[in-house]
């Protein structure tokens, strides 16, 4: 085992973690601010991938299609999220969590059937743009360009979220709402639009995750269930509603999986769950402060 292999595996693990982060960030944001457990987050991710497929194949041919899809697909998902929040979710904020879970779970089924109606039950496949396909060599180990691209996108999203939450008025209201919702209401802030904006942002992140994954996976029904388990693991380990916790835990799980594949390939498949278990035993309420 040489150090180049180790370094490249670390890089691959980080890029995997970044992808988890993009999806989990949206989930934890909605969790923290709206206090809604959004089961449909995985469906929004799936929609992002399907939109990305449609935009990339219908709007433009070749290279431009991928980039256009990466821009438009998350926006389309954000729009749908906005409709969900204004049309459905806002009526049940005062209800018990069970009702919210029922609603978001029913959305999972509805979106599954909608996708089947629109795109059919066959899977779709999208190609990577030429500039991102192939790989480069680092100390004798090949790393795909696309993983490097994910490695750049992840921090960009994190930076954008930080700027939004820390530097904008809306972001500050979001954080305040997450900490003490009643106080925000008392201060006369119209929190309903904060909720709508946050839910749309969460949807945008899910859609972005889907669009980023579209060229490397089967775009198909069932991809929602695959990702939602990971997203929940990451959110719980990171501390419910804490975005930086989600960032740390997605990197831990991503790198952990990559190292597992290198050092104990027989056990790689259970590693994320083992890591989760250990972290939860050490810190039952999550790595960072949970808002709940």
């Amino acid at each position: 085992m040489n150090s180049a292999a180790l370094a490249s595996q670390l890089l691959i693990g980080l890029s995997r973690g970044m992808l988890y982060f993009v999806v989990a960030a949206g989930l934890t944001l909605v969790f923290g601010v709206l206090r809604v457990i959004n089961f449909a987050h995985g469906s929004l991710y799936m929609l992002g991938a399907f939109f990305s497929f449609t935009f990339a194949t219908v709007l433009a041919q070749g290279q431009a299609g991928f980039w256009l899809a990466l821009l438009l697909a998350p926006l389309a998902v954000a729009l749908i999220s906005l409709l969900i929040e204004r049309g459905l979710l806002r009526f049940i904020y005062q209800r018990e969590h069970l009702m919210q879970m029922l609603l978001t779970y029913s959305l999972v089924l509805i979106f599954g059937d909608l996708v089947k109606l629109i795109w059919g039950s066959q899977y779709q496949s999208l190609s990577l743009p030429g500039i991102l396909s192939g790989s480069f060599t680092l100390g004798g180990v090949a790393i795909p360009w696309y993983n490097l691209f994910l490695l750049v996108m992840g921090p960009l999203v994190a930076l954008g979220l930080w700027l939004f939450l820390d530097r904008t008025r809306l972001g500050k209201i979001c954080r305040a709402t997450a900490t003490d919702r009643e106080m925000v209401d008392i201060l006369g802030v119209n929190s309903t639009w904060v909720f709508a904006a946050v839910f749309a942002l969460g949807g945008w992140l899910a859609g972005l995750g889907g669009a980023l994954m579209a060229p490397v996976v089967n775009i198909s029904l069932g991809m929602d269930a695959n990702i939602i388990i990971y997203a929940f693991l990451i959110v719980v380990v990171g501390g419910l509603g804490n975005i930086w916790g989600a960032l740390i835990s997605s990197l831990i799980i991503g790198v952990g999986e990559a190292m597992g594949a290198l050092f104990m390939p027989d056990w790689a498949i259970v590693l994320p769950y083992v890591i989760t278990g250990i972290l939860l035993i050490l810190r039952p309420s999550g790595l960072l402060k949970s808002v709940w």
């Binding site: 040489n2 292999a5 490249s8 595996q9 691959i12 992808l19 790393i143 990559a258 594949a261 390939p265």
Partner: peptide, 14 residues
């Protein structure tokens, strides 16, 4: 349904 095969492939190559 593994979303990303890169870590497995890199470890096999190593």
């Amino acid at each position: 349904g593994e979303p990303d095969f890169t870590p497995y492939i890199a470890s096999i190559r190593a």
